[in-house]
Amino acid sequence: MWRLGGGVFVGFRLTGPAFLPLDRHVVIAGSTRSGKTRLAKKIVARARLPAVVLDWHGEYGGVSVDPHLLKISIEGLDKKLLCEILGLALNLNEPSVYFLYRAVRNRELRTLRDVVVALDEFLVSTKSEVEMKAAIARRLEYVIDVFEGGRVPADLVFRSRRVVSVDLSSLKLYEERVLVILFVLASLYNYLFSRGIAKGVERLLVIDEAQNVLRRGDVVKHLVFESGKYGLRVVFVTNEMPPPEILVHSTLVVTRPHRVYNLEVRGSALLRDDSVERIWIV
């Protein structure tokens, strides 16, 4: 009942049952306390697919992993991508990101501690570079503790056939949560890439409070777009309307329209391409 033709049952439309297709990524948007999380839980349960949930508030339950215990290796990440991720999470400007790349591009990196060491050993010659180096190192030290005690390999989570939540609510700093989300997304992409092109949808990634990463540049968009061919569907749960580039590649479910969305619907709706259909979520 919950699945039909690759879609997941989400409620009813005027003409009968409403099924959410999974041939694209999914955006669940709505105002606060409009049922976004509840709908995301239903989609994950009814899809009957392996899933990783990046749980911003600790609301999803089930099999949960403390991010402090998650072992994320940066060894397989492209150095430019690594620096872009750190730049996005730590709010580094473009010159700082490039400076960091210069410091690590010829170094062997396995952990964030290796990044700190490479930065510390990078020789500088001007006062501005000294200040930039110190500022980057200071921001790295704020978040590095999250990744120091990891014992559960991320690949083990990705290989699970169950729904696994990463409880981000245990992290105190906003930057820590964003960094974990970005590293999990990049690591999952690398894992799926190593497995090759998929014939269909194989797993879900739910990003709660996704507005915190969607507004952070092209890195997220690139990883999301490319991951689709490897069988991943990302479910963005957000209270803001995503950028147009994300919407073009997604099916949008609005749980409760917000006036800033500029949508001519008064209740829950399913939007795809140019069609808008009123639905009643169940």
Results as ranks from 00 to 15, higher is better:
G6D: 00
A29R: 06
E277D: 00
T37W: 12
L263R: 05
T111I: 06
N239E: 14
V116C: 03
A269G: 10
N262S: 14
S73Q: 07
L271I: 15
N93Q: 13
N93Y: 14
V10Y: 08
A29Y: 08
I197G: 01
M241R: 14
V52T: 14
E84D: 13
L22H: 01
W56Y: 13
V237Q: 10
W56Q: 07
L54T: 03
K71D: 06
Y98S: 13
R3N: 09
Y189M: 06
F12I: 07
M132W: 06
F225L: 13
K80M: 12
E226I: 07
E202D: 11
R48G: 05
F19E: 04
E202N: 11
L100C: 11
L112V: 03
W56E: 11
T255C: 09
D114I: 06
S187T: 12
L179I: 01
V115W: 08
N91E: 12
L205W: 04
L168A: 02
V164I: 15
M1V: 06
G228P: 01
A40P: 00
V27N: 06
V237L: 13
R177V: 01
Y191T: 00
D114F: 05
R162A: 13
L100Y: 01
V152W: 02
W56L: 02
A154Y: 04
L90S: 00
L192I: 05
E176F: 00
F158Q: 06
G231M: 02
V164R: 11
A154E: 08
V178I: 15
G11P: 09
H68T: 03
L271S: 04
T32E: 10
S169C: 07
V115P: 00
A47V: 01
V143H: 06
A154G: 08
G231P: 07
R110M: 05
V163C: 10
P67A: 00
R3D: 00
E175V: 09
I136Q: 09
R266N: 14
V143T: 01
V224F: 08
C83P: 06
L100M: 13
G217Q: 04
L86I: 04
A40G: 14
K36F: 05
V63L: 15
F183I: 03
P243T: 11
V201K: 01
L49A: 03
H68F: 14
V124Y: 02
A134L: 13
L204E: 04
V180D: 01
D208W: 11
E245V: 12
F12E: 14
D167L: 10
V166K: 08
H25N: 10
L92P: 02
V224W: 08
S275E: 13
N91W: 06
T255Y: 09
K133R: 12
G87Q: 07
R272C: 04
R3T: 10
E175T: 11
R107T: 05
F19Q: 03
V260C: 02
V157Y: 02
A47P: 03
R159Q: 09
I246C: 07
F225M: 11
Q211S: 11
R266P: 08
E245L: 02
V130G: 08
R159W: 05
R161K: 15
F9I: 05
V52L: 03
E209G: 01
G61I: 09
A186D: 01
F193M: 08
H57V: 10
S187R: 14
L123T: 12
A135K: 10
E131R: 15
E245T: 11
A40I: 09
R13N: 07
I181D: 01
R195K: 15
